[in-house]
C-alpha cells in the first residue's frame, strides 16, 4: 500500500516527523538543488578559507603557534572534503563542483575575500569568523539531509578548538604591550562587520530562507542567529578590554538583547559580486593550485592503472 503512496507525500511525512532523508530516498528536485548549492558553497568556503590563514603559517610568532595554525588549516581542508563527499551523494561530481568554483559560478562565504594584514587577524578570525560559523553550523547538525547532518557533526566537534585558539590569541595580545593591544583592536575593527554579514541578508530580503526552513535544512533565521552571535560576543569583547566598532551598540533591558547599528549591505553586495579586496587573488590561487597539481593526479592515476594491470596479468599467469 505504502508503495502506492505518493512519493512527495512520503517525503513530506519524513520531514514533518523529523526523520532524515538519505541519499537514495526520493526527494523533490528543488530540495536536491538547494542542498547541492548550499553544501558545495559550504565546502568551497572551507577550501578558500584555508588561504587567509595559510598566509600566516610561515610567519607565526612561535613554533607552538605555527603547529596550531597548521592543524587548523588542515582541519579546514578536512571540512571541505567531508562536505564535498556529502554533496556528491546528491549526484553531482567533485569535478563539476570544482569547475563551478574555479569559473566563479559557485559562491563561497564572502568573509574570505578580506585580507589578513597582521598576526592579530589569526586571533580575530578564530574568535569571530569561526564563532559565527559555529553559530550557523550547530543547527545544521540537525538538518533534514542525513549525509550533510553527519558531516556537520564532525565539523562542529573540530571547530570549537578553532574558536578557542583564536580567542586565546586575542587575549594574549590584549594583555600584552600597548602596541599588541592596538593590533588586537585593529583586527576587531576590521573583522566585526564582515562577521555579522556572514549570517546573510536580513530575513525580509533573504531569498532562500523560507523554503529551507520549511524543509528543515535551516532551523533558525539569519537575523535570529546574528542576534545570538552579538549577544554572545559583546561580553567576550568586554572581557578582552576591546571596543566593538559600533557606536549604536547598547544593551536593551526590555528585549534582553543587544541593539546594534545597521549593516552596510552595499559592502556585502560588492564583495559577493566579486569586488572585495581579495576575490580575484583567492580564485587565482585556487585555480593555480588545481592546475599545478594536474601532473600529480595524472601520474597517480597512471600508476594505479599500471599496478592493476600487473596484478591481473600475474593472476592470469598463475
Amino acid at each position: 500500500m505504502t508503495q502506492e503512496m505518493d512519493l512527495n507525500q512520503r517525503f513530506e511525512a519524513y520531514i514533518a516527523s523529523d526523520q532524515k532523508i538519505e541519499a537514495k530516498d526520493w526527494m523533490p528536485d528543488a530540495y536536491r538543488k538547494t542542498l547541492i548549492r548550499q553544501i558545495s558553497q559550504h565546502a568551497h568556503s572551507e577550501i578558500i578559507g584555508m588561504q587567509p590563514e595559510g598566509n600566516w603559517i610561515t610567519r607565526a610568532p612561535s613554533l607552538k603557534r605555527k603547529s596550531i595554525l597548521l592543524a587548523k588549516v588542515q582541519d579546514e581542508a578536512g571540512h571541505g572534503l567531508y562536505l564535498y563527499s556529502a554533496a556528491e551523494t546528491l549526484g553531482i561530481t567533485r569535478d563539476e563542483m570544482l569547475d563551478a568554483l574555479h569559473t566563479g559560478k559557485a559562491k563561497y562565504s564572502s568573509i574570505f575575500n578580506y585580507p589578513t594584514l597582521t598576526w592579530a587577524d589569526m586571533g580575530a578570525i578564530g574568535w569571530l569568523v569561526d564563532g559565527a560559523a559555529i553559530m550557523n553550523q550547530v543547527p545544521l547538525c540537525k538538518c533534514s539531509y542525513g549525509p550533510y547532518a553527519r558531516a556537520m557533526v564532525r565539523v562542529c566537534k573540530e571547530e570549537s578548538f578553532h574558536q578557542r585558539q583564536g580567542f586565546q590569541i586575542m587575549l594574549n595580545l590584549s594583555n600584552g604591550t600597548p602596541e599588541q593591544k592596538e593590533m588586537a583592536q585593529d583586527a576587531l575593527n576590521r573583522w566585526w562587520w564582515p562577521s555579522l554579514m556572514m549570517f546573510g541578508p536580513n530575513d525580509a530580503s533573504s531569498k532562500h530562507s523560507e523554503q529551507s526552513m520549511r524543509w528543515k535544512i535551516k532551523r533558525f533565521s539569519n537575523d535570529e542567529l546574528r542576534q545570538r552571535f552579538v549577544d554572545m560576543t559583546v561580553p567576550q569583547a568586554e572581557l578582552l578590554g576591546l571596543t566593538v566598532p559600533d557606536p549604536d551598540l547598547k544593551w536593551n533591558e526590555a528585549t534582553g538583547h543587544y541593539d546594534f547599528g545597521p549593516i552596510d549591505w552595499s559592502e556585502f553586495e560588492q564583495v559577493v559580486a566579486g569586488n572585495g579586496p581579495c576575490n580575484r587573488e583567492r580564485i587565482e590561487t585556487r585555480v593555480a593550485a588545481h592546475e599545478n597539481g594536474v601532473w600529480v593526479r595524472d601520474a597517480a592515476a597512471a600508476y594505479a592503472e599500471k599496478s592493476a594491470e600487473r596484478a591481473s596479468s600475474q593472476t592470469s599467469a598463475a
Binding site: 556528491e88 567533485r94 569535478d95 593526479r297 595524472d298 597517480a300 599496478s307 592493476a308
Partner: peptide
C-alpha cells in the same frame, strides 16, 4: 570525467572491540 579518481567509502574501527563504522567517502587513485 576521466580526470576524477574513483570514489571510496571509508569505514573506521574507533577502538579494539568495536566494529568498523562508515564515516564518509573520499577520492583516491588506488
Amino acid at each position: 570525467p576521466k580526470t576524477e579518481w574513483p570514489l571510496w567509502e571509508v569505514f573506521v574501527r574507533s577502538r579494539q572491540g568495536l566494529s568498523h563504522k562508515h564515516v564518509g567517502s573520499l577520492h583516491a587513485a588506488d
